[in-house]
Amino acid sequence: MRKAVPALIPFVAVTLATELLVRGGLVKAYLVPAPSSIFLAILDNGTELAAALGKTSAAALIGFALSTSAGIAFAVFLSSSRAIQRAFYPYAVFFQTVPIIAIAPLLVIWFGYGMRTVVAAAFIVSIFPVIANTLTGLLSTDPALRDLFRLYGASTRVTLFKLRFPAALPQILTGLRIASGLAVIGAIVGEFIGGQGLGSVVDVARTQQRTDKVFAAVLLASLLGLALFGLINWIGAITLRRWHASEQPA
């Protein structure tokens, strides 16, 4: 709890300042609603928002799980030789630069309205950091340790699972932290087009000029991203605490 205090201080300060600015008429409520209005919007639309949050969470989690497994598998494939990297890595980079908002309508044509399109959007947006970070980790294995494994006749598979993967774990977790937030963003964008979840709530509330409801949905989406990020941090703390500087007390 003590660790959360520094992060809560700016949150409380900005919330209080916004409340005062809106109540004092310095900021129009239809542009930026008072935090108390957002809180009330969450209470008033609790059932609708909870259902939407459930759908967005499911889509983001599935997309994130797919990008994690496919991204790590693809990075392992890329790391197998320089020639393979040169042949395929540019396509991974290209995949990352495709604007998701531009191809979202295509996703609807391919996958139809609903969950599958949203999952596809979350997957597309979140896979690149997993590939890039895992690849960096796999290629950074200590050459002396690779020699040691060779000296004792370790196979490629044994070297991968007993040396290269564990050594790459800090970088893989960095990729997953970035991807977790992106998966939520991808899911929301997919929902604008695919028509469900918090993205759909934002879209509909926007047309109704319900900025309080828009902010309520955005706040819930952000909390979802934070929860996913926290989950990866927790996994990192469990797996790295004994041996990696990033998880040890300063």
Binding site: D142, A144, L145, D147, L148, L169, R242
Partner: peptide
């Protein structure tokens, strides 16, 4: 035996 210990930190 290498120049540094090169142990598996995990």
């Amino acid at each position: 035996v290498f120049q540094d210990a090169h142990l598996l930190p995990w």
